[in-house]
Measured scan of single mutants.
Amino acid sequence: YQDQEQRILKFLEELGEGKATTAHDLSGKLGTPKKEINRVLYSLAKKGKLQKEAGTPPLWKIAVS
């Protein structure tokens, strides 16, 4: 689980600052079920590491501290 968090954070960091992506996109790029990706995304957002942008589907990006 920790491993997934690292992979997602790394992927988003590599996208570049301010760039956002969807759970669907992450799921495809990382070869992980979207349900699992979503769980990790919401967990990271709760920890303040990610920012969720409203929309359908929601967009995710690295939180700027």
Rank of each mutant, 00 (worst) to 15 (best):
K49W: 10
E14L: 08
L12A: 02
L30C: 05
L15G: 07
D25E: 13
P58F: 02
R39N: 09
S27L: 02
L50G: 01
D25W: 09
I37G: 00
V40D: 05
E17M: 07
P57C: 03
E36L: 15
L26M: 12
T21S: 08
K19N: 10
K10D: 11
E53H: 06
L44E: 01
L30P: 00
L44I: 00
K49S: 08
K61I: 00
L59K: 14
N38C: 02
K34Y: 09
A63K: 08
T32A: 13
G16Y: 03
T56S: 14
T22E: 01
L59Y: 10
T21I: 14
L12P: 01
K61A: 05
G18Y: 05
E53V: 09
L44H: 00
K29H: 10
G18C: 06
Q2F: 10
A54R: 12
Y1T: 04
K46N: 05
N38V: 03
S43M: 13
L30W: 04
P58N: 07
K19V: 15
E36Y: 11
V64T: 10
L9G: 01
Q4H: 13
E13Y: 08
E36M: 15
T32K: 14
K19A: 15
I62N: 04
S43T: 13
E36V: 15
G31I: 04
Q6T: 12
A45T: 05
E5L: 02
G55R: 04
G55L: 03
S65F: 05
D25Q: 15
F11N: 03
A23T: 04
Q2I: 10
S43Y: 07
L9F: 06
Y42R: 15
R7W: 03
T21Y: 07
R39Y: 09
L26G: 00
E36F: 15
K19S: 13
A54S: 14
L26A: 02
E53S: 09
Q6K: 14
R39G: 07
E53C: 10
G55P: 00
Y1C: 11
G48A: 03
S27D: 01
N38T: 07
F11V: 12
T56N: 12
T32P: 03
G28R: 14
E53L: 13
F11T: 12
K46D: 08
P58H: 04
G28S: 14
F11H: 09
E13H: 08
A23F: 00
K19E: 15
A63W: 03
K46H: 08
K61R: 15
Q6G: 10
E14W: 05
E5F: 02
I62S: 06
Q4C: 11
L26Y: 00
T32E: 13
I37K: 00
A20V: 08
I8L: 08
K52L: 06
L41V: 02
A54K: 08
S27T: 05
D3A: 06
L26W: 00
I62A: 08
A20K: 08
Q2A: 05
L12D: 00
T21E: 03
Q4S: 11
R7Y: 07
K34D: 07
R7V: 08
K34V: 14
A54D: 10
G55I: 02
A20Y: 11
G48H: 03
A54G: 13
D3G: 10
L15M: 15
S43H: 10
T22K: 01
Q4K: 12
R39W: 05
D3W: 15
V40F: 12
L59T: 11
D3E: 13
A63P: 13
A20E: 06
G31P: 02
K19Q: 13
G16C: 04
K35N: 13
G48N: 09
Q6C: 03
Y1S: 12
G16L: 02
L9T: 03
L9V: 05
H24L: 02
G28C: 15
L44G: 01
Q51D: 10
Q2N: 13
L26H: 00
E53T: 10
F11Q: 10
G18F: 05
G55E: 04
L44V: 00
L50E: 00
G28V: 15
Q2Y: 10
L30M: 12
A23V: 07
L50M: 04
Y42L: 09
K19L: 06
T56G: 04
K10E: 07
K46L: 09
E5Y: 03
K49N: 06
K19Y: 09
E5G: 06
G18K: 07
L15S: 07
S43A: 13
K29N: 11
P58A: 09
A54F: 08
G55A: 08
S27F: 02
A45I: 05
Q4D: 09
A45Q: 10
